[in-house]
Computed example of a mutant assay.
Amino acid sequence: MACELPATLGVPLSRLSVADVTRHAQRSGLVARISDSTVWRGLHEDAIRPWQHRCWIFPRDPHFQAKAGRILDLYARCWQGQPLRED
């Protein structure tokens, strides 16, 4: 599904049900008619599951930012301010 749900629905995306998404698609004119199961299949294929959400656990480690920064640098292919080679 290449449709973005607007924030004007008044709730976070994680609080929407498949029926909510279906109603929004119909009311917004995106589709004339669509079933809940079709919407569910589309969301499922794209691994988007607004009805499932996780709670964020706040890190308590005082050195978390430095530790996480090293990992994020590796994802960005950088180490100690230097770009990493392709290998």
Rank of each mutant, 00 (worst) to 15 (best):
S37E: 15
P59S: 01
V31T: 06
V18A: 00
L16W: 13
V21T: 14
Y75H: 09
D87F: 12
C55I: 07
A32V: 10
H44K: 06
C78N: 14
S28A: 12
G69P: 09
E45T: 05
L30R: 10
L74Q: 14
D73Q: 11
V31E: 09
Q65M: 13
S35Y: 07
H63K: 09
V31Y: 09
I48E: 00
P12Y: 02
L43D: 04
R27A: 15
A76Q: 11
A19I: 04
I57A: 12
R27C: 04
V31I: 07
R60F: 08
A68Q: 09
W40R: 00
H24Q: 07
R27K: 15
P59A: 10
L84F: 03
L5F: 11
F58C: 08
R49A: 03
P50V: 06
R23S: 12
R70M: 11
A19M: 05
A76P: 05
A25E: 10
D46H: 01
H63N: 12
A7E: 11
R60K: 07
Q65H: 12
A68C: 13
R33E: 14
I57E: 15
W79F: 14
P83M: 13
C78K: 15
R77W: 09
Q80P: 02
A2Q: 07
K67V: 12
R77K: 15
A19G: 11
R27H: 14
L16Y: 15
D20P: 03
H24M: 08
T8M: 11
L74Y: 14
D36K: 06
H24V: 04
A66V: 00
V11L: 07
G29P: 13
R49L: 02
A66F: 13
G42S: 06
F64T: 07
Q65D: 08
E4L: 11
W56K: 12
Q65Y: 08
S28F: 08
L9M: 10
Q82N: 04
I34Y: 00
P62F: 03
L16A: 03
V31L: 01
E45F: 00
D73E: 10
W40D: 00
L16G: 01
D73L: 05
L13H: 02
D20E: 05
E45R: 00
F64N: 02
R15W: 14
R49F: 03
H24E: 13
R60W: 07
H44A: 02
A2W: 08
T38S: 11
H24Y: 14
S17W: 06
A19C: 08
T8L: 09
R85G: 00
S17A: 03
L30Y: 03
L16T: 03
L13F: 09
G81M: 12
G29W: 01
L5H: 10
Q80I: 03
R33S: 11
A7S: 13
W56C: 03
A7N: 13
I71K: 05
R85Q: 08
P50T: 12
A66Y: 10
Q52R: 09
P12N: 02
F64E: 05
C78V: 14
R15I: 08
R70W: 15
L74N: 07
T22R: 06
L9Y: 07
G81A: 10
L74C: 06
R54N: 06
E86T: 15
I48D: 06
S37L: 09
T38M: 02
M1H: 03
A47N: 12
H24K: 07
W79K: 15
K67F: 15
A7P: 07
F58R: 15
